[in-house]
Design a protein around this nucleic acid. Sequence first.
DNA 1: GTGATATTGTTAAAAAAATAACATACTCTA
DNA 2: TAGAGTATGTTATTTTTTTAACAATATCAC
Lengths: 226, 226
Amino acid sequence: MGKEINSIPDIIISRLPVYYQYLKRLQDSTKEYISSEELAELTGFSSSLIRKDLSYFGTFGRKSYGYDVFCLFQQLSIIMGFNYKKKIIIIGAGHLGQALAYNKGYRERGYQLISIFDKNPKLIGLVINDIEIRSINNLEEFMENNKINVAALTVPGGAAQKITDRLVAAGIKAIWDFTEVPLQVPDDVLLEEQLINEGLCKLSVKMNQIRINNSESAEDLNCEQK
Amino acid sequence: MGKEINSIPDIIISRLPVYYQYLKRLQDSTKEYISSEELAELTGFSSSLIRKDLSYFGTFGRKSYGYDVFCLFQQLSIIMGFNYKKKIIIIGAGHLGQALAYNKGYRERGYQLISIFDKNPKLIGLVINDIEIRSINNLEEFMENNKINVAALTVPGGAAQKITDRLVAAGIKAIWDFTEVPLQVPDDVLLEEQLINEGLCKLSVKMNQIRINNSESAEDLNCEQK
DNA sequence: GTGATATTGTTAAAAAAATAACATACTCTA
DNA sequence: TAGAGTATGTTATTTTTTTAACAATATCAC
């Protein structure tokens, strides 16, 4: 279905935002070129891996100089498709939805936030960061009149699947999901699950490991339950 | 430094929150046992991988039955250290910081949110979800009187490193970082970077790929820049 | 109780990813 | 312009991760 050919390995995709982040910050500096070795120091990835990742997309470097900081940043933007304009809406104007309305990351990535929807009448009509909150009742009509590329989903878990079905029926092709609820979507709809509490989980596991290693009693973990 | 021995591979750690999420939802159902095959269907990981992941921590299954839904959930909680109590504070009471104050994910993971700090006098004293916003001036004093395990960092990029240094000096050992700014921390401080816009990046890359595949002109991507 | 069935935990094989190594090409100095 | 130095892009090797296979064990129907 078109997804198979030319698909960048997920593991590479996952490193692109990191490269992007560091190169973005270097734009302000006077540094003109950066070597894979220096980039390795910044990102924590090996220089070899960085060269390999980049070579997946083309040849961007200059022998004995390194990579042009500006050009590489541009190239990364292109690789990630930031030069294409995308329209995004937020569904759910709760605390998280509102925080997302103030997020400054859209523009540089080619996104334009154009609306927020909620079902709470008290919120409808309110203006958040220049964006008016609309009634969820008008979702389908709005989507018919505006080509929406991505919907950020910040509704309560109970409403998540129902809203998702409506979005899919209205033709959405990508969902940025903050609900922490397993959602069903058709194969041709991209679903990016943003497990907001994943960081808490990882920190907890790691703190736990440190505790175990310090107390040198790793057997506690393998306690049989029966 | 204690970190080396007994360290769970990151790749396994990254799947634990997913297992946890699905098993949590199964707690409400009448399902008593679940097979690795069924879990595979839910999570998208292969059944073989799931069995292997779990066997890393012990033997939790029952031959020809599968895994006890309740027990496995409990075990996962223990593996991730959720049975240990951890205190967390939020630094930065902006939109994102406030949204995090309303996050419902702390308790089940063993975290207790005990304070929010900000430097804005207009916010200090305000109560968000039963938590009073304190002055950042009182950070050190507060940390001396309360053993804090994790600090969630939602301050503007410009202030990030300075605040981090203060947290580290005050003895913090884990930071949940939302700033999207590269932070320097000592080796013994856990830094979990929560790149909030990573999802937007990944969706953009994937939508871009689909476009390229559909138009069958993959060469566009490899345009030389010189 | 016996045999058919199911599902684990684990071992073996395959695939994917990361690292190391290096030939190539460019720069700079003298 | 020759030679030393540098850093890429790519190939070879190693390591890690995933998948496949299967022996072991428990269940259940009869």
